[in-house]
């Protein structure tokens, strides 16, 4: 309703200006006295305004306020107290913050690097002309993506349960390995969480690489075969370079996703959290909604923002370089 009113107001404003150049489109049998151009302007702004209104309230304001809040001490209720860079001092002197950053990067690496490699191999297998039942395999591999992250975290929390009867501990028992207290072990926690990430995302990335491989024209392979290229040469000099945009996309999204990891450790180690699985977002969440330290939590959010920017640009840089050196090889 408000938008409608604004629109009529807009058009009233425009009516004045239209009279000066109303001979622009004199032929059109329009009843209204303003031109098509002006009407496009009015509806253009009106059609995009919902996003900008929402973004003003739930985007711009919260972001600016985060930067403001990072320099204040605030428990959410009382007065805010300006503390300068003290909040940043607090988190940079908190070993748990550095631990959470280390965990986030470690779990991210363990969960995504082998996964993307596996996805490329799977996509290559599924793209091969020799293989039948492709759609069945594709369906099976993609199915985990349909489940929610929470469901995945719960299922794998039970699979990696601390009890001797837990599934992984039972399997380890078959090989004579003592049961592991997964939720309280440094590498056990990371391995369990990395497994969750691997299982849910490998099919998604496979499907994307597969789409990329299918977009490569067959002529390229034909030409390479005529020139006597082996299968390995075809992979290195045709498939990988042509997949470059897809690899960049998956590396980019996987990095950003891994740096924002929250649900898996929050569910695996329980609400209180433990240092072995503490991630940066979990650290922020606990600070804010567990301890009401909204100033330091905002400072953490800002640090995380810059970490994400640094890591995604580093990744983009390296992903670009890999592609480029391959391209030189082709030429």
């Amino acid at each position: 309703m408000a938008e409608l009113q604004r629109d009529t107001r807009n058009s009233n404003d425009k009516r004045d200006s239209i009279q000066t150049n109303s001979n622009q489109e004199p032929k059109k049998p329009k009843k209204r006295s303003f031109s098509q151009r002006q009407r496009n302007m009015a509806s253009g702004y009106m059609f995009i305004s919902p996003f900008y209104l929402l973004f003003a309230v739930f985007g711009v304001f919260p972001i600016l306020f985060s930067f403001y809040l990072a320099f204040f001490r605030w428990d959410g209720l009382g007065d805010m107290e300006f503390v300068g860079f003290n909040n940043f001092n607090i988190i940079f002197n908190d070993p748990l913050f550095w631990k959470s950053l280390y965990n986030t990067i470690m779990i991210g690496l363990m969960g995504t690097a082998p996964q993307l490699l596996a996805a490329i191999l799977l996509a290559f297998a599924l793209n091969s002309v020799l293989i039948r039942f492709k759609s069945v395999f594709r369906l099976a591999i993609f199915l985990p993506y349909v489940t929610s992250i929470v469901a995945v975290a719960i299922v794998f929390s039970v699979i990696f349960s601390n009890q001797d009867s837990g599934l992984v501990n039972t399997v380890l028992g078959v090989f004579g390995i003592d049961p592991i207290t997964w939720t309280r072990s440094e590498w056990g926690t990371k391995a369990a969480i990395a497994t969750m990430i691997f299982w849910r995302w490998v099919g998604y990335n496979t499907i994307i690489y597969l789409a990329g491989m299918q977009s490569i024209p067959n002529d390229l392979y034909e030409a390479a075969k005529i020139d006597g290229a082996t299968l390995r040469q075809q992979i290195w000099h045709i498939t990988i370079p042509m997949l470059k945009p897809f690899i960049i996309f998956t590396v980019f999204t996987a990095t950003i996703g891994a740096l924002q990891i929250f649900a898996e450790p929050h569910i695996f180690q329980g609400r209180a959290g433990r240092p072995e699985g503490m991630s940066v977002v979990l650290y922020l969440y606990r600070d804010a909604f567990g301890s009401n330290f909204f100033g330091t939590a905002s400072a953490t959010a800002i640090v995380l923002f810059f970490i994400i920017i640094i890591f995604s640009s580093l990744n983009l840089y390296f992903a670009n370089r890999i592609g480029r050196s391959k391209k030189v090889g082709v030429k």
Binding site: P62, F65, S66, V281, F294, S298
Partner: peptide
């Protein structure tokens, strides 16, 4: 990243 505005959005 959505976490950047998480806390102020909560107060809104």
């Amino acid at each position: 990243p959505p976490q950047l505005g998480l806390i102020p959005t909560y107060f809104i």
